[in-house]
Design a binder for these strands. Structure first.
Lengths: 340, 340
DNA sequence: TTGTAAGCGTTATCAA
DNA sequence: TTGATAACGCTTACAA
């Protein structure tokens, strides 16, 4: 069996509580005993039992990363990994671990309950706010510390969250196309169940309207955040009587699909159709043509989200926190072509 | 405070142990009491405290995913996320969670000790075997359940692992180039500290030799598993008096770098230089040209690894397990060109 | 079929 | 400066 605090105590001729105090470096223990106890700990290869600690401390120093199945299917996306890396770097620095719970095959409520009431984690990170987000409502209701990476629709002021200004990002992206001379611009969004889709669509519409262009419903498409979704959407747009000359897609993977659809028909990008998208995943720059994309700064989203969560865990009384992470419009050949 | 087993017991006029037995659905409790206790659990919204459970059960139903900093830097790679998804699907099905520990800024031993002796996890998944792998040695020594995704160099028979047959994969990939008529073939591997690099290099050499071609040391390069590494390597190869006409790269990201290097010099792929690589990350097919790549089946690596780990956790006495996951050579335009 | 009580490995309160 | 002792919330012999 592993060595416990009692084993140390016995060997050092002190009580377990003294050992515990040495562990927390209490200043009410003589330097001499500290030395002695520490030496024995080393000899015996002692390491505190984190579960036992958690039980009495009521803290696991672990935060949960919860991905309900619906979300995971939609966002099977490289940028998810970037977010985890961001979270991880802040977590690691603060001696927190990350518990990943995939809700696969289980009901969302069941999984959340096991995390929250089971006290497996001190707080939760949610990825992507949905329009009616069960997880947000549940956690809010339970007063459990959490942060959403993504602006929630209904609880913007009472929930901790971090996101880009997606309305503005879509606005800038669309404006970029308009400035290139496009007047017929399509919009391919993800599922409308996600707030991010709504925001980006709004930014798109705002840019269109501001430039005196009419909004065409047949230019507005909703699909999955996947390559296949982008493919289908572009095919549908191309089948219109007057197809758009440019398309805003809300994800790079979709844009990859769009590229494939256009290549299948021997059409040129951006000459026949310009493409712009979101996320700037690591391979967007290596696509053919390289994709104009909004860099959402995923790593920073994760980092800041984690910082907010730590604040919430340690000072639950404090005000609601939110953060807007700057994005960057990266112009590449899929919109501006080779000339420029 | 959260409701405990005692609260339920009081309300149901039974003892805590009875409640506990209801929880584990013991067959020594009358159906009637079960019903009654369960009803009260629902009413009070009871959920078992997982930490308390872990303490007595000596199991956290959590497995650790350990990524020492050195490894993480090297493998900042989309296929890592695929592996996690694979692990996650099996874990979720078996009611396990995944604890991700990024060793950032901490010593590897320190982190491992906190996981193993701190009993935060029931077992560990290691990603990528290094030639002298501290983690492997440490865990083996501690007799702690673990599995390596990647063949270990020294303990092939005494350690659980799962991997592709990297020697064969590299052999097939190189042979593919030879069959296309190439005789001058370069090899750009990752750091030699990783077993995977050694294996792939061996497969490459085997194919070269078997076809009566001489091995040229100036065609063998070692670099990072990153885009930049591929770029630099190809530049170096191009500066040779007689550069290779084809190159085997051990990662798609490297291949992206290679593509960039060639495009910078207005060289054609595969006419001026054919490229083939490993991993078949989701965007390899959308590169320009689409990349010929070995699909290592990352998701399956994760799944099988997790299955082996569960076996090890539940039957520690059983024999050492290992698994070879089939790979697939996906031929695309970066090697075969458009004609075919 | 159910209850009592000990124990899992810590920390924290109170006394000494 | 240190030591008893009682938690933390659960499981499991052993008794009844």
């Amino acid at each position: 069996m592993a060595v416990t605090i009692h084993d140390i105590a016995k060997r050092a001729n002190v009580s377990p509580s003294t050992v515990s105090r040495v562990l927390s470096n209490s200043d009410r223990i003589s330097e001499e005993t500290k030395q002695r106890v520490r030496k024995i700990m080393d000899e015996l290869g002692y390491y505190p039992h984190s579960v036992a600690r958690s039980l009495v401390n009521k803290s696991t120093r672990t935060i949960g990363f919860f991905l309900p199945r619906v979300v995971e299917q939609v966002f099977n996306n490289p940028f998810m990994y970037e977010i985890i890396r961001g979270i991880g770097s802040v977590a690691s620095r603060n001696n927190y671990d990350i518990l990943i719970t995939l809700g696969e095959g289980k009901k969302e409520e069941e999984t959340l309950r096991s995390l929250v009431h089971g006290r497996k984690v001190d707080g939760l990170m949610l990825i992507a706010a949905r329009v009616n987000d069960f997880a947000v409502d549940f956690l809010k209701n339970q007063k459990f510390p959490f942060v959403v990476v993504g602006r929630p629709l209904h609880n913007e002021n009472s929930v901790n969250w971090v996101d880009n200004d997606n309305v503005d990002a879509a606005y800038q992206l669309t404006k970029h196309l308009i400035e290139l001379g496009h007047r017929q611009i399509g919009f391919v969004g993800g599922p409308l169940a996600y707030v991010v889709t709504i925001d980006r669509c709004e930014g798109y519409k705002k840019a269109i309207r501001e430039h005196g262009i009419a909004i065409r419903d047949d230019y507005l498409l909703e699909t999955e955040f996947l390559e296949e979704g982008g493919y289908k959407a572009v095919v549908q747009l191309l089948n219109l009587k007057s197809p758009p000359t440019a398309v805003v897609l809300t994800d790079d993977l979709m844009a990859f699909g769009a590229v494939r659809a256009l290549k299948d028909r021997r059409m040129k990008i951006p000459e026949d159709m310009a493409l712009v998208s979101f996320n700037n995943i690591p391979t967007a720059q290596f696509a053919s043509p390289p994709l104009t994309s909004i860099d959402v700064n995923s790593c920073e989203l994760g980092k800041t989200g984690m910082e907010i969560l730590l604040k919430e865990i340690n000072h639950p009384a404090a005000a609601t926190n939110r953060a807007i992470i700057p994005f960057e419009l990266i112009k590449r050949r899929s919109s501006i072509g080779v000339s420029k």
